[in-house]
Simulated assay, not measured.
Amino acid sequence: MPLPATEIALLTDTLARQWRRVRTWVGDAVGDDVRGEPSVLPGWTVAELVAHLARAMDALAVCVPAEPTTVPATFAEYLGSYPDRAEEVAETARIIARQIEDAPLQWADARATAALHEAESLGPDDVVVQGRRAPVLLSTMLVSRILELVVHADDLLRSVRRVRGADAAPDPVDPVALHLVAEELLDIVVARGGWDLEVADARLWLRLAAGRVPYDVDALARALHPRFASDAVPDLGRMLPLL
Rank of each mutant, 00 (worst) to 15 (best):
A56I: 03
P124V: 12
A108E: 03
L41G: 08
S81V: 01
G123H: 05
A51N: 05
E118A: 13
V62M: 01
I96N: 00
G131S: 09
H117F: 09
E48W: 13
G80I: 02
A103Y: 06
A108M: 12
A103W: 08
T113Y: 10
P42V: 12
V64W: 05
L137E: 00
A97F: 08
V71M: 08
L116N: 06
L53P: 06
L138W: 06
T74K: 03
V150L: 04
L105I: 07
M57G: 14
A56S: 15
E87A: 06
V129A: 02
A54C: 09
P68A: 14
T70S: 10
D109Q: 12
V136R: 02
V62P: 00
P68C: 11
L137M: 07
R55M: 11
A76N: 12
L149C: 08
S139H: 09
T92C: 00
L60M: 14
E118P: 01
A134R: 13
R132P: 03
E87L: 10
V129E: 05
A112Y: 06
V50G: 06
V143T: 13
P65Q: 10
R55G: 04
E88D: 14
R98M: 09
E87D: 09
L41V: 15
R55P: 01
T70Y: 09
L60F: 10
P124A: 03
V40E: 05
M141G: 05
L41R: 12
Q99L: 15
V128K: 03
T45Y: 04
A86Q: 13
A97I: 11
A97E: 00
V136C: 02
G131V: 00
G80E: 01
E88F: 02
Y78V: 03
A47Q: 15
A90S: 13
V64H: 11
S121I: 07
I146D: 00
D109Y: 03
V50P: 03
R145L: 00
V71E: 14
A93L: 10
G123E: 04
V50M: 07
G43Y: 11
C63S: 11
S144I: 00
L116V: 04
E148C: 07
S139K: 09
E91Q: 14
G123D: 08
A90K: 12
T92H: 09
A114H: 08
L142E: 06
L149K: 02
A73E: 01
I100R: 13
S121V: 12
A134C: 12
L137C: 06
P135E: 08
Q99F: 09
E88W: 04
I100T: 15
D125S: 13
W44H: 08
T69P: 01
G123R: 03
T140R: 05
G123K: 02
V62A: 07
V50A: 11
